[in-house]
Design a protein around this nucleic acid. Structure first.
Lengths: 210, 210
DNA sequence: ATTCTGTTTAAACCAAAGTATAATCGCTAG
DNA sequence: CTAGCGATTATACTTTGGTTTAAACAGAAT
């Protein structure tokens, strides 16, 4: 169903990279090793499900800073931290930032593999959700400005005549727009459309006027 | 608006209890100190917003075990861990379990106060949400079995005639039940009802047959 | 035995939603 | 200039949704 998962190892120590890579490949995982963070940033995250295995201490930027940077750039990818010289505040910060796991060397191989499975599972779920939202957004893009306005009001439960009054057009025009909205959004029913709107976070924006 | 927040300190060392209590009281927080976990379990969580300040090592049961126990018992309350002798796996486990913060002694007072504010904010949001759901559940309780069935089908977007066919009653009967559902649930519109159903996790159960 | 609740249905409407056809108008891209 | 899009509206229906009134019936509770 979903594409081949990719594990990305970022560590400046070639020995560790190779050792981790060997372990992961031995269980059939597709691995990509990088020596530094910029290499990851350059390519962006892989298409399929992925998981980052990151050393906390990295040349230039620390793994924790990198985690923040990804979050700020709105790039979602599960991170597993590995460190030889970590402390509690470091691990707490990593976990607060949404890390899947924070392992201290030496760690049991099984712990890493478990964490990776968990990370991949999360990423699959996230990707699936993103895909669904992207599809909805694509449909929403095809709506004309007026149709978006009408949709925003429809999903709040307003009646056609009320919507007509709200935006000062005739009720019949509302019906036309509303019908178009249902068709373009491929909504099977009103509750369906309402749920789509919720997924598109209509709660916060209502309908941007830009 | 919301009730007075309560901070619950659980620590077996009376000196630490008093010192923490003093600090928190000095910033105007209502504090309750306990020497052990069973004392908390006995009373259950306070009415208003609350936050637990918990030593990881406690007589009998560790703070982490207690955290798990609360989660298992479905008792929600933000936890801030404090420890003098912690390690990384311990902190990681605590954070995975949803802890707000994990502080190592000695810590800056401001860090604890910040964590407490964050914990209280989370708890307020949680309480508010719980209250809303409880209200919905109360309304749902007033529905008769038939009304619940009809509601379940209505919020999926089925038409009255389809529902009638589904449960083999006449369309007019469906209308009667549907009207009752809208009134009893205090739903202002169909999208409104659909959202209520979603909040009541109709996705998972649809409608239990028990 | 009687009351009450839940369930069912019919008749008779009224309101709301949705569809199809057709036409007008302003604006923009060829 | 003209074709096309977005927006608007009207007419004319059909289909759904929703309410009221009234009635019937079964089963549980008093």
């Amino acid at each position: 169903m979903s594409a081949q998962p990719t594990i990305i190892i970022v560590d400046d120590d070639p020995g560790i990279r190779e050792s981790l890579e060997g372990l992961l490949r031995s269980v059939g995982l597709q691995v990509k090793t990088l020596a530094s963070v910029p290499e990851f940033v350059k390519e962006g995250r892989p298409e399929g499900p992925a998981c980052l295995v990151l050393d906390v201490r990295l040349p230039g930027q620390s793994g924790l800073d990198f985690q923040r940077e990804l979050a700020a750039a709105n790039i979602q990818v599960p991170i597993i931290f590995i460190t030889g010289y970590g402390d509690i505040p470091m691990s707490v910060r990593a976990m607060k930032g949404g890390a899947v796991e924070f392992l201290t060397k030496p760690f049991r191989e099984q712990d890493l593999l478990d964490a990776i499975q968990l990370g991949l599972a999360r990423d699959r779920a996230w990707l699936e959700n993103e895909k669904a939202i992207a599809e909805l957004r694509a449909r929403f893009e095809t709506l004309t400005p007026r149709e978006r306005e009408v949709m925003a009001l429809v999903v709040t439960g307003r009646l056609n005549k009320q919507i007509a009054y709200d935006i000062r057009i005739s009720e019949i025009t509302v019906k036309v727009h509303r019908g178009q909205v249902m068709r373009k959004m491929k909504a099977a029913s009103l509750p369906d459309l309402a749920r789509m709107a919720d997924k598109l976070n209509f709660t916060a924006e209502k309908h941007q006027t830009c």
